[in-house]
Amino acid sequence: MSSIASSARIHPLAVVEDGAVIGENVVVGPFSRVGSRVVLKDGVHIISNAVVDGFTEVGADCRIHPMAVIGGVSQSLHEAGEDSKLVIGARCTIREGVTMNSGTVGGGGITSVGDDCLFLANSHVAHDCRLGNNIILSNNVMLAGHVIVGDRAILSGGCAVHQFTRIGRQAFIGGLSAVNYDVIPYGMLNGNPGILGGLNVVGMTRAGIERAVIHKVRRAYKDIFEAEGSVRSNAAALRNDYLDCPEALEVVDFICAESDRAISSPYRGKA
């Protein structure tokens, strides 16, 4: 039995399957379909011609544009129809043709998206991805399975991210880049193969990070990537030097954490 709030507006040409939960002031436009296990929180607006399916929860005040397919089964070769989830936070904008897949049992069973994210046309979020808050995926960005993206990261148009890759908080990925390896917090990556080109100083400044802190992070970046030795050993060796700078420490801890992928660097992929 569906639970549809009295203030919800369901267009007569929309299909809301029995069992769906529809919150207050939700709008479901014409030719849209809402599956039986979907939860639409208060204020969600599905404009028209969109599909929300699977075991999917869409946060309050999200806006879903035409031709988006949200909560479809994963494209994993191991997909076997198990119950898995897609959870989207509040106030996300999902533009035309966006696709987001549910998780897989082998990957934890959930794909998650934070609050206040913007997904531009035809971007794709694959199974078991975990996205933070205030993220922007520009047109045609492709996230493979199990990708982790930190808060306030920006991925420019047409870039592709390899499965199991981590992208740190406030990183910036240039258009058409191939992201084959982890990108540090505040890192700026461009090219195919992707080359780390320094720090996203503009983004850091816009986020209100003080100039003195940016200089410390720059010094840590230089100590990690320009010194002799491996990137991980360099980061581990200087951790105690940056205990007074959470932003630099975040970079160090990101590099030292266990990961399925190597770390993007200014030199990886160069002749």
Rank of each mutant, 00 (worst) to 15 (best):
R268E: 00
V231L: 06
F172P: 09
P193I: 00
K85C: 06
D115V: 00
T93W: 01
G97E: 07
G168L: 10
G187C: 11
V213R: 12
G103F: 02
G35C: 14
H127F: 01
I195N: 00
D53L: 14
I22G: 00
V141E: 08
G203Q: 02
S264V: 06
I135L: 03
F119G: 08
G229N: 09
T205E: 15
R33K: 12
A90G: 05
C245V: 13
H162R: 15
L120H: 06
P30S: 13
V252P: 04
T99W: 02
I173N: 06
A14R: 09
A236R: 11
I47E: 12
I148Y: 07
A60D: 09
A50P: 13
V16W: 01
T111W: 00
V16H: 12
F164N: 15
G197A: 10
M204Q: 06
K270M: 00
V161Y: 08
G35H: 15
G109A: 05
E210C: 08
L176Y: 05
S177L: 07
A121F: 05
G108F: 05
L120V: 04
V26H: 04
G168T: 14
L249E: 12
A235R: 02
P66L: 11
E82Q: 11
V39Y: 07
I64F: 04
R268M: 00
H124P: 01
V149D: 07
L120N: 09
E228Y: 02
G208R: 02
G97C: 04
S264L: 10
G197H: 11
N133D: 15
D223V: 09
A144L: 03
G208Q: 05
G23R: 04
F119W: 10
N192K: 03
T205Q: 14
M188S: 13
V201I: 15
R33H: 14
V213Q: 04
F172R: 14
S6R: 06
K41Y: 08
I255E: 05
S2A: 13
A8T: 15
